[in-house]
Simulated assay, not measured.
Amino acid sequence: MLVEGFSDFRVTPGPFLYADNMIAARLTVTGTHTGPYMGIPPTGKKIQAIAHTHYRLHEGKIAELWDCTDALSLLQQLGVLPPMP
């Protein structure tokens, strides 16, 4: 959905922590809204959002993944929601 909605979609890793079998990473997501995204027609706007992702490893492979992306900021940047006062 993100790749279709944002033609130059990019994820840039930031700091991460590793302990036991868990990895926590801060990711910066950027792109230009050139295709439909969640029913929102293309706006041509550039976005930047932060995601916090956690991975649980098992035998050297990702067994589980939890992701929390700042969707509120993303929708505000697209003009779907008003900015915070």
Rank of each mutant, 00 (worst) to 15 (best):
K46A: 13
G79M: 13
P41Q: 07
T34S: 15
G31C: 10
Y55T: 00
M1K: 14
G5C: 04
L74Y: 01
Y55S: 00
C68I: 09
V29D: 02
I40P: 00
H33Q: 05
T69W: 01
A51G: 09
Q77G: 02
V11D: 05
D20W: 12
P82L: 14
I47W: 02
A49L: 03
E4D: 14
T32M: 09
D70R: 00
L72V: 14
K45Q: 02
A71Q: 14
L2K: 02
H58I: 00
K61R: 13
A19F: 04
E4S: 14
G31R: 13
E59L: 02
R26F: 05
T12H: 11
T28R: 08
H58V: 03
G39R: 03
P41L: 08
H58M: 02
G60E: 05
R26K: 12
L78W: 05
I50Q: 05
Y55D: 01
I23E: 02
F6D: 14
M84P: 04
Y55N: 00
E59T: 02
M1N: 15
D70C: 02
A49K: 01
Q77V: 01
I50M: 07
I23C: 07
A49Y: 04
P42W: 03
W66H: 11
G31D: 14
H54N: 03
A25M: 06
F9G: 08
S73L: 04
L75P: 04
Q76P: 10
